[in-house]
């Protein structure tokens, strides 16, 4: 290939990347697993079979899955508006979308308490109607939505900007409806970015500690998520249990990546099959749209 770096440079760059990731990612992960298995395999599994640990895992998964569709829908909406159109206050809007990143997680929790807590803005009304938001599931879902809000949008905006709008405009001018254009043109173009965004949001949703901790109430077996469970176990001098739970979180994050790899693989196979079937047509298409 003419456009590849010389071999020495490839090797050097790969070495730098791997060294950096090893130092900052692999080593901490190894340390977590080392601590988790410090008491042997049986202690590790005993810690996970604990009913409180199981309920924490269930709750964590539930919240992560629940917030996912919201993030995808609103992420695509925001990215569509921002990347494909010009309007006043666009920078402001992008900044507002970024805002949840910049707010300290502890402050996020505090902010929701100021609104929904017993002493908060709507506290009186909520308690009069016996609606529980904070220290119950709705509050935990809300803060998770807040902290994961930017991921999908932020992942899609630069990608969609880089892609421009020629393809979509072409689709529309050829008579496609908005929905057809989205499904046939936009979605295939952004699928990887969308997937990365979802994976990040998902990982963050499962791993979040600070904000959730403020609104959870820490009721065992009821509002304790896995990250909260980890901290409690650690504070109780149960390091094995704490790090075992932490390693489960790390593994859960990897599961989404495995899913991504599978999807990627499947798609490649499909396109390869399509390519062989529709080869002449595809060549025509490609040469038919000069840029």
């Amino acid at each position: 290939m003419a456009n590849a770096e010389p071999r020495w440079l490839r090797y050097t760059l790969t070495a730098i990347a791997l060294a950096f990731l090893f130092l900052f990612l692999a080593l901490p992960l190894l340390a977590v697993f080392a601590e988790a298995f410090a008491g042997g395999g049986s202690a590790f599994f005993a810690a996970l079979a604990d009913p409180e640990a199981l309920s924490a895992i269930g709750l964590t998964l539930f919240i992560a899955i629940f917030v996912l569709p919201f993030n995808v829908a609103i992420g695509i909406c925001a990215a569509w508006a921002i990347a494909k159109f010009d309007f006043r206050g666009k920078s402001l809007l992008i900044t507002l979308i970024d805002l949840p990143f910049a707010v300290s997680p502890v402050v996020v929790g505090l902010v929701f308490l100021l609104i929904f807590g017993a002493q908060g803005l709507f506290g009186q009304w909520l308690s009069a109607h016996d609606i529980k938001i904070v220290f119950a599931l709705p509050g935990m879902v809300l803060v998770t939505l807040f902290i994961t809000f930017p991921f999908v949008a932020r992942e899609l905006i630069p990608l969609m900007q880089a892609q421009g709008k020629d393809e979509e405009e072409a689709a529309i001018s050829l008579g496609a409806t908005g929905w057809q254009m989205f499904l046939r043109v936009t979605l295939p173009n952004i699928k990887w970015g969308l997937l990365y965004g979802v994976i990040l949001a998902n990982a963050r949703a499962m791993g979040e500690f600070g904000a959730v901790s403020v609104v959870s109430g820490h009721i065992r077996g009821q509002t304790n998520t896995l990250p909260l469970h980890v901290e409690i176990l650690y504070n109780e001098y149960n390091a094995v249990g704490a790090f075992a739970s932490a390693s489960v979180l790390a593994l859960l994050a990897l599961v989404t990546l495995v899913a991504k790899t599978l999807v990627e693989w499947q798609m490649r196979r499909e396109t390869e099959m399509l390519d062989t079937a529709l080869l002449p047509e595809k060549v025509n298409q490609e040469s038919g749209i000069p840029s």
Binding site: V32, G207, P227, A246, A253
Partner: peptide, 26 residues
Amino acid sequence: KRLVDSLVDLPFALPTAVAGITLATL
């Protein structure tokens, strides 16, 4: 490569307290 790729998201999934404790120990 795939394994390395999947590691990148680890910092989000690991509760921050665990990250802090582990890094301090390392």
